[in-house]
Each structure stands twice: as C-alpha cells, then as structure tokens.
Design a protein around this nucleic acid. Structure first.
Length: 478
RNA sequence: UCCCUAGUAGCUCAGUUGGUUAGAGCGGCGGACUGUUAAUCCGUAGGUCGUUGGUUCAAGUCCAACCUGGGGAGCCA
C-alpha cells in the first residue's frame, strides 16, 4: 500500500477508506481502552490523530510510541468525536524509529526560541519551525515566479570572487594555503600568486557587479544566491551567511526601480497570504501569546492584518533632504530625544531616525531616495545637483532596511572619477568598466535580504530563527 | 566591536542583608482514572549553581577575568 501524506488525507477526508501514513509522534495520550497519538509528517501544520486500541497491540509496541518516534500506521479513516474532523483507527503500527523519551530534547510543551536554536537540527519538528520552513519555501518559489512572469532571467553569479571592491562588507577569505606557513615574496608579504586562483580571493558579498554585466545584455536579470559577510555583527537582523535577491535592469531609472521593488514586495506578501494561511495563522497566535504580557502600546500589529496593510497601501516615497526636514521638525528632535542629533544634510540616518519615519510619522513602508553622495557606494548615479546620488532604501517597520538599491552610474568619465576619489583600484575593475565603454545604458537594481523578508512575513523577532542553520559570529554549529 | 542584561534539574524559572540537607512548575519514570486534545490526579528520580581565579571561618549569593545567550547600537540586506 502506498503511503499517503497527512496534507492530502486532511484535504480529502475520505471517510471509510483504508490508508497508510508515516510520520513522527508529537504527543501520546493513554486512555483505558485506546491510546491517542498525534502524528505529524511535516507536509502540513496539523497533526493526524491516530487511535490505537490497547487490546489490538502488544504492550511492547505501545511502549515504543513516544514523543519523537517515527511510525508507519495502516488504518481506517473515520469521523472523529473530538476537536478534529477525522482520525485514523489503527490496524497495524510499525515503529520505524524509536526515540528514547528520557533523552529526546523536544517535550510536548512550549520551548524558548533560544533553546531551540541550540538544537537547530531538531527544531524542524516543532510547529513554529516547520511553519517557517514551509513559508520560506513558498517565498523562494514566489520570487522565481514573479521574475519569470515579468520576463527576467535568473543568473548564477560566482560565490568565489576576486573583487573585494564592492564595499559591501568584510570578506571571508578563500585559500588553499597552509595557514601556518603560506608562501611569501621577498618583501615578506603573503604571495597570493601561488594560491589556488593565483590571486587573493573571498566569498561573495554581493552579486551586483556581475549582475550588471548580464543585465547590459539580457535586459532584465536577477540573482538569488548565498551571500557572505565577515562583519562582527551581533544583532537580530544580521547573518554572516544569508540569501540575497538582486534584480538588475537595463533602461530602468530610479522611478522604474522603485516601482519594481514595491510591486515585488507586495507580490511576495500577497503570495504568502494566499498560500500559507494556516501557517500564518499559527504564527500569528504564537506571537500574540508571546506578547500577552507586554503593555498594550508595545505589542505588534496582528500578523495577517500587518501583511495586508503593507500589501494594500502605497509606500511613501521621499527624498533624503525631505526626510531630514521632517526629522528636524519632529517632536523627538525638538525635545532632544534622539540619541544622534539630526544635523542637516550629510547626517547619516540612524536606526532611530528610520524607525521614527516608518513607525511614528508615516506608519507605513517608506522609500528614501537621493542620499548624499559621500555616504553611499561608488557605483550609484550622481544626480544633477552633484551632491546626491540616485539611491533608494526601502524601510520596513521593525526590521528597518529591507531593500537597498540605486540607479547605477552609466557615464564612464563620472564613474572613473568617483572610483579614484573613493580609492577603488581601477586595474582590478577593468571588466566592470568595459560595460561603460561599450554600449553603456542607464540601468538600475536593488538587493533584497531574503531572511529579512521572511522575518517580516513570519513576524519572528530574530533573523536566526528564519534560516535553518544560522551562521553568526562564534556560531557555526551543525 | 561598544553599552545593558542573564547563565541554578532535560526545559522555564525562584533562591532573603553571604550561614547548615539548593526549591517549584513542566517534562521523564511508576501508579490511579479516563474517547483523550500540551489530558487529569498521586508518587518518584534527577543539580560540580557557565568556567577559572580571588575575598571570607563560610560563596549559588561578593570581586575580577574569560566563555556563551538575550536586548540595544554600529556595519548593512
């Protein structure tokens, strides 16, 4: 007999049919004549209740049915008298894999997220993490679906790269040298010409520069790959290894870029609302339970309500200069409540400022554009005023910057001047500059931190809980 | 990396101004009861108090350093 998955069983509710299921025991409740076993196979949040008549099964089998054990059950699907619509009356039970109840770390009770992080290899077996895993998958699929429908091509940009000129962060080094005795040149410096690639290499911090090359031939491309930053960041929204989506479009200006970013985010959120309802409802209840003891004003908006709100409302778009004015005239500025004062043009906006704009002033996502040139990367297009660049940051409540992007500087002379001023080694970037030498066109793109998106969609408070195996400073378990 | 904070049973936590055998709930185990819903009730085992050093007659409690977690900041996605 072919195994059926719990998802299809609960959908079909084929009363009276004999079926075979396999899964892991969540809880077992013993009764005089029957045992109730909640079985979960991960295909869906809900469990299937298996009813085992104690007179039908040997004591030695029933003893092995503990939380965490794997079972295959053959039985008849019947209407249930309890909370669930259907249940499985077992005829045969095979204990496929035992789980010693004395040692199995997951108990039928609530665990802290911090504890579950320490047993990340088992946390998939909890409602919370299986829900997140399913939503994460749905979002991966939706990303590819969105871009495919829009005529974008997915490009695999390299994971090992020699260009560390992107300025996006510290790189992890890639080498085959013996670290205690690397080859050295006469002046005592490490001689990378003898390394595997014949030069100094590292893990990518961004696929953007390579993405631009593809976009300036294929018109619209996107990357979706792992990204590595060796920054010593210890926050709830940074990972050393994360997944980033970077679309790059030829003949797009900053407005086109903003339109795409907003449409993209709303598409993804709507996809989750339409396809992950049960998991979202569970996470919503979980969040409300967790925040029950918080004072009213510190509780977050109900998850599904929050997602609908973002999907249904236009993002606010304003320039950096306008934002500075709003901040300077704000209550916290006048009362000296900001830890970092807003000094006027040139001030780098701090988290507290971004949060004020998004959470207090506008109460919705904000796209900030036209930042001062000196606080942004070399490749961003210089605006006509000469002081600002065509950058855009999409700011979300709670998580802050979810997207960073810009229109790129397509003018060869302007770009070279900028690179010189910012000490970018031109000789290593000739391949990039070739795109500006031959058939250069206006183009734009942005980067979306995939885990930040998942953090927002699931309502989780820590980015380490939305990636199966988080890599952070001092943490590379599993 | 900086600031704040925490580390006591498998998990979540309590532990008084330093004072004798370190407690609870949940989970585990044993039993009772029972078409149950993280079942309920009774009983029971389980601890090098993060590590190292120091102060003291005496340290879970005070001091120092380190390790690890959490919150915030910076860097950013």
């Amino acid at each position: 007999m072919k195994r059926q998955e719990i998802k299809e069983i609960l959908q079909s509710e084929a009363i009276g049919s004999t079926i075979k299921v396999s899964g892991w025991v969540r809880t077992k409740r013993e009764s005089k004549n029957v045992n109730f076993i909640n079985l979960n196979d991960g295909t869906v949040l809900s469990n299937l209740q298996v009813v085992a008549d104690v007179n039908l099964f040997d004591e030695s089998i029933l003893r092995k049915i503990n939380t965490g054990a794997a079972l295959t059950v053959v039985g008849e699907l019947v209407e249930s008298g309890g909370q669930q619509k259907v249940e499985l009356v077992a005829k045969e039970i095979e204990v496929v894999g035992e789980a010693d109840p004395d040692k199995y770390p997951l108990q039928p009770k609530r665990h802290s997220l911090e504890f579950l992080r320490e047993i990340a290899h088992l946390r998939f077996r909890t409602n919370t993490f299986s829900s997140i895993a399913r939503i994460r998958h749905a979002m991966i699929f939706a990303v590819h679906k969105f871009f495919t429908e829009k005529g974008f091509f997915n490009i695999h940009t390299p994971i090992i790269t020699a260009s560390d000129a992107e300025g996006a962060g510290e790189m992890f080094q890639v080498t085959t040298f013996e670290l205690n005795n690397p080859p050295r040149s006469d002046d005592g410096k490490i001689d990378y010409s003898q390394d595997f690639f014949g030069k100094h290499t590292g893990l990518t911090v961004s696929g953007q520069l390579e993405g631009e090359l593809a976009a300036l031939a294929l018109s619209k491309i996107y990357t979706f790959g792992p990204t590595f930053r060796a920054e010593n960041s210890n926050t709830s929204r940074h990972l050393a290894e994360f997944w980033m989506i970077e679309p790059e479009m030829a003949f797009y200006d900053l407005n086109d870029n903003m339109d795409l970013a907003e449409e993209f985010l709303k598409y993804l959120i709507n996809y989750a609302l339409e396809n992950c309802e049960e998991d979202l409802m569970f996470l919503s209840q979980r969040q409300q339970q967790e925040e029950k003891n918080k004072p009213q004003d510190q509780r977050s908006m109900e998850l599904i309500e929050k997602l609908k709100f973002v999907a249904d409302n236009e993002f606010v778009r304003l320039t950096y200069t306008e934002a500075i004015k709003i901040l300077q005239n704000s209550k916290p500025a006048k009362k000296g409540k900001f830890q970092y004062p807003v000094e006027g043009f040139g001030t780098d906006l701090q988290s507290e400022h971004e949060r004020y704009l998004v959470e207090k002033h506008f109460k919705r996502p904000v796209i900030l554009i036209d930042y001062p040139a000196d606080i942004k990367a070399f490749y961003m297009k210089v605006n006509e005023d000469g002081n600002t660049v065509a950058a855009m940051d999409v700011l979300f409540p709670q998580i802050g910057e979810i997207i960073g992007g810009s229109q790129r500087e397509e003018r060869y002379d302007v770009l070279v001047e900028k690179m010189k001023a910012m000490n970018i080694p031109l000789e290593e970037m000739e391949w990039y500059l070739d795109t500006r030498r031959y058939g250069s066109v206006p183009h734009s793109g942005f980067g979306l931190g995939f885990e930040r998106l998942i953090t927002f969609v699931t309502g989780m408070g820590n980015i380490r809980d939305v990636i199966p195996f988080p890599r952070t400073p001092k943490n590379c378990e599993f």
